[in-house]
């Protein structure tokens, strides 16, 4: 009888995020392989195998130069939707700083600068270029 490798659970569920290559704006990988500005649309992985599938899906659009720096991050589920846990991802999910410069009012277009586009799901996927649960990899030294 073949040995079946048990699926290793994650400590918390994860979703996958990246930045749009052209504008740098924060986006989240949806279950259908498209990217959304809204974290509530994010696909959720609950074990390593599901996470690998999401990262492979994300890598399709990394390769087509649509997004850059994709990685998975911890979330909690609220009403079945991904909600970020750490402050860094909470701020990224807002797509704005927690403060706005004096005299400036956040404008609606700040929140809606992204139009979701379909990824090319026909491309073969691999996770080689995708940082896996390692946010520090995309930090750039000052």
């Amino acid at each position: 009888m073949a040995h079946v490798k048990p699926i290793k659970p994650l400590k918390t569920p994860v979703s996958v995020t990246a930045n749009l290559l052209l504008k740098g704006l924060t986006v989240y990988l949806a279950p259908d392989g498209t990217w959304s500005a809204n974290i509530a649309d994010a696909a959720i992985a609950e074990d390593l195998a599901q996470e690998a599938v999401l990262l492979a899906l994300a890598n399709v659009t990394v390769k087509t130069q649509y997004v850059v720096g994709a990685y998975s991050f911890a979330v909690e589920l609220v009403n079945g939707k991904a909600t970020p846990i750490g402050m860094r991802e909470i701020i990224r999910a807002k797509r704005l700083p927690t403060i706005v410069p004096d005299g400036l009012t956040p404008k609606p277009e700040w929140e809606n600068q992204f139009t979701a586009a379909n990824a090319d799901s026909d491309n073969s996927a691999s996770s080689d270029n995708v940082a896996k649960s390692n946010e520090s990899k995309r930090s750039e030294n000052v």
């Binding site: 930045n19 504008k23 740098g24 704006l25 720096g69 000052v142």
Partner: peptide, 22 residues
């Protein structure tokens, strides 16, 4: 160019990728 190839080129021109944008 891949991101790994491009990153040092943009950095030499002061272009970083931060949390929300470039």
């Amino acid at each position: 160019l891949t991101e790994d190839e491009f990153k040092p080129l943009r950095l030499q021109n002061g272009v970083y990728l931060q949390l929300h944008a470039y």
